[in-house]
Computed example of a mutant assay.
Amino acid sequence: MSESKKTCADRVRAAFEQAPTEGLSYAGLYEKLAADGMDTDKAKDGINSTLRYLVARGYLLRTGEREDARFRRSGAAMTRPRLTESQRAERTKAKNRRRVERARAARGATVGLRAAMIPKPVRAAPTATPVFETYEEYRKRGGRVEYLPASWNSVNR
């Protein structure tokens, strides 16, 4: 395997294969990986994640806690867990459900953004309502109506 194609997990496993009987602490593992040409500062999260995975799979045994932890090979081979058909179907359903939920959430966010871009309608300032009164009301109030003569109307009131 070429050096450029090695993943973080490949390099961690290779470090433990070089020292099968001795255990490595965090510091010892980081030294081996740095000597192998790996930038351990950038890959710190990947290394820790790989160690947790290898311990969970039974490839490594861990003794001690936190800084005092030491890891050594258990002698078990790295095996991939095989899923039954029902487990695979359940995993596929869960994955599809998450995909649909992400798509629905993205659509909802898009609709919300579009709605925010639509300008709000300008509300007109309230205007004073004109006061109306009928002819009879005006006359009762004492108003006088002046009749203008028209050519077809010869009678003045």
Score class of each variant (00 low, 15 high):
K120D: 13
F16S: 07
E17W: 01
K32S: 08
E31Q: 10
R57A: 12
R98Q: 12
A105N: 10
P20C: 10
A125N: 08
A69D: 03
Y147I: 12
M117S: 15
E136F: 05
D36M: 07
S154H: 15
D41T: 04
M78S: 05
P121G: 11
A34P: 00
N96E: 14
F132E: 09
A69L: 07
Y147N: 09
L61T: 02
L113S: 15
A14H: 02
L113P: 00
E67G: 12
A19T: 03
N48M: 12
A150D: 08
D39M: 03
L24R: 05
E146V: 09
A34R: 09
R66L: 15
A109I: 00
S49T: 08
R62M: 12
F132H: 08
T134V: 02
A34V: 01
R98F: 12
A106V: 03
R62E: 13
R82G: 13
N153I: 05
A116T: 10
R52H: 11
D10Q: 05
R99P: 00
R11S: 03
K6Y: 03
R104E: 13
T7L: 11
D41S: 08
T21Q: 14
K140D: 02
N153E: 14
K5S: 13
V55W: 04
P130H: 15
V111W: 03
N156R: 09
